[in-house]
């Protein structure tokens, strides 16, 4: 007998150990995320997947589904909190979408549209984060880092290199690379690493021809992040 919980009133079946987020996506319901990736254990840092389960706020990616739970996700309250979290991520870094090579393929930008973020609301922090252009194939633009640690995890757990890590604390937390010089060129990073292709925003950019696909014809120009992620999910199952 399959077990199920209710997501915004709709029954969602789940298997033992499956998280709320995984079960929901599998059943064709979108819960947003930035740090979650289907090939990695839940991270639970971005908090975009926040839902109310049995009255308590939890991360849908890190919370195993439970029989009979009533989960609120696509509600004005939860979407309002998500919009707030997105605004926080936008003011924390330096995000200049119109001039960014990742524009249209960026998950942060796409979620901004999805959750109708019309203003940054808060004061910008304008942190100083110099770019690293030392590597022949890849540019690191730390201004856009949202600390999802996907590059950290991919490099450490899949590429077996541990090229990236986080240092500092709190609002001063930042990404560093595995070299005394602090330069990506002095690491064993390669443009073929998984870590080179996993950034959901515009930190890890491949050098060479820019804007090969014109803005206006990119992933999230064609469809919303909700549609794309659900379609990806369907294709992979």
């Amino acid at each position: 007998m399959t077990r199920q919980f209710l997501l915004d009133g709709q029954p969602v079946p789940f298997e033992d150990g499956q998280s709320i987020l995984e079960a929901a996506r599998q059943a064709g319901h979108y819960i947003p995320s930035l740090c979650w990736h289907k090939d990695f254990p839940a991270h639970g840092s971005c908090k975009l997947c926040i839902v109310k389960a049995a009255g308590r706020h939890v991360s849908a990616c890190a919370t195993p589904a439970r029989e009979g739970w009533e989960v609120e996700s696509n509600t004005p309250e939860m979407n309002g909190e998500r919009r707030g979290l997105l605004q926080m991520l936008f003011v924390e870094g330096n995000h200049f979408c119109p001039s960014c090579e990742k524009s249209g393929n960026c998950e942060l930008q796409a979620l901004g549209y999805e959750y109708e973020m019309l203003s940054p609301r808060f004061r910008h922090f304008y942190p100083e984060r110099p770019v690293d252009a030392s590597h022949p194939d890849v540019l690191l633009d730390f201004n856009r880092c949202i600390f999802c640690e996907l590059c950290v995890r991919a490099s450490r757990d899949v590429d077996g290199k541990a090229v990236f890590a986080l240092t500092g604390r709190g609002i001063d937390k930042h990404l560093v690379v595995n070299a005394e010089s602090g330069r990506l060129a002095d690491t064993d990073f390669s443009k073929d690493d998984l870590a080179a292709h996993i950034c959901p925003v515009g930190v890890i950019l491949h050098k060479g021809p820019g804007f090969a696909v014109p803005i206006g014809e990119r992933d999230y120009d064609r469809e919303s992040i909700r549609q794309k992620k659900l379609r990806d999910e369907e294709a992979s199952s």
Partner: peptide, 21 residues
């Protein structure tokens, strides 16, 4: 709290800094 936030999750990392502001 802004000084002691570990910075792992978005709400605490940015929220404590915003509250301080």
């Amino acid at each position: 709290f802004a000084h002691e936030s570990c910075g792992f999750c978005t709400p605490c990392r940015v929220g404590t800094a915003l509250l301080k502001g």
